[in-house]
């Protein structure tokens, strides 16, 4: 079943314009729970209360405050918040291009697929050009009252637009000290590299399945029928210490495994 476009926009690259439809590229498959009242097993609701008196405050009485200093709030009314909203627009402006590996992974947030909305020839040509050049466009747009920055890339002949986090949302690793403690020896590093190389392979997404999700759903299905299986308690694992011998043992056991296979 085809998905519904969640938004329509127009890519603007220099003087070129290209109408596109936006689709979510991902769907969260987490098991969804409801919060229930334990005694009655009814659904619960949320409201805002004064924590001292415990009294409910009606939504129309609630005011919004910006904490400008600890404990100091500036009240902002609806009019103020309305004025802060960005100007609505359909334009996805691509101002510049960077190499694909020029954007650290930490910035990627949420991917969308773009589909052509009319001009198919240019759509597929742009996707091809981005793939050929191994570059991504840096895009800016406003969608549903929010400003976004994104990376526009070509993938498998189609266009993908991922939202990117801004500067303040990513902690710069350069601001952190290197970990303290004893440094590993050259020999240990060589052994560890050897161990890593033996475990090296391709990234194959299909290798990763959400077994936990399956187990939770299976358990719920059994419980619904009135026979929930007994679950074993969680054991805590013992920790190994001596690094050198452990590295050598790991390599030996991997080699043995390979020979047996």
């Amino acid at each position: 079943m085809a998905a519904r476009a969640i938004w329509k926009g127009e890519l603007k690259l220099g003087t070129q314009k290209l109408p596109v439809k936006l689709y979510s590229a991902v769907e969260d498959k987490s098991v969804r729970f409801h919060i229930l009242d334990d005694s009655k097993r009814n659904r619960v609701k949320q409201h805002m209360v004064n924590p001292e008196s415990g009294k409910e405050v009606e939504p129309k009485e609630i005011r919004k405050g910006y904490e400008i200093e600890p404990g100091r709030f500036v009240i902002l009314d609806e009019e103020d918040l309305e004025a802060l909203k960005p100007e609505p627009s359909r334009e996805i402006e691509v101002r510049e291009f960077v190499p694909i590996d020029g954007i650290p992974q930490q910035f990627y947030e949420r991917p969308y697929f773009l589909g052509p909305d009319g001009n198919q020839a240019d759509y597929f040509a742009l996707a091809q050009a981005l793939e050929n050049q191994k570059r991504e466009g840096i895009a800016h747009w406003v969608m549903r009252n929010k400003e976004y920055t994104g990376a526009l890339g070509g993938q498998g002949g189609y266009l993908v637009l991922s939202t990117l986090r801004n500067e303040g949302e990513v902690i710069d690793v350069g601001k952190l000290p290197k970990p303290a403690g004893q440094a590993p020896t050259k020999k240990e590093i060589e052994l560890a590299k050897h161990l890593v190389s033996m475990l090296e392979g391709e990234f194959n997404p299909a290798d990763y399945k959400d077994e936990y999700r399956e187990r939770v759903l299976e358990f719920i299905a059994k419980k619904a029928k009135g026979h929930a299986p007994r679950l074993a308690a969680v054991k805590t694992k013992r920790k190994t210490t001596s690094l050198d011998s452990v590295l050598a043992k790991s390599i030996a056991s991997l080699k043995k495994g390979k020979r047996a296979a």
Binding site: N42, V44, K45, H47, M48, R63, G65, F73, G168
Partner: peptide
């Protein structure tokens, strides 16, 4: 520890006298 943080300066909900409010669950019935 998280390496991303929400940079949205979210606004605090205050009562009519400016008292910060707490979100609470309640039984619907």
């Amino acid at each position: 520890y998280p390496a991303n943080r929400s940079n949205k300066t979210s606004l605090r909900m205050l009562g009519p006298d400016g008292e910060p409010l707490a979100r609470k669950y309640y039984a619907e019935k």
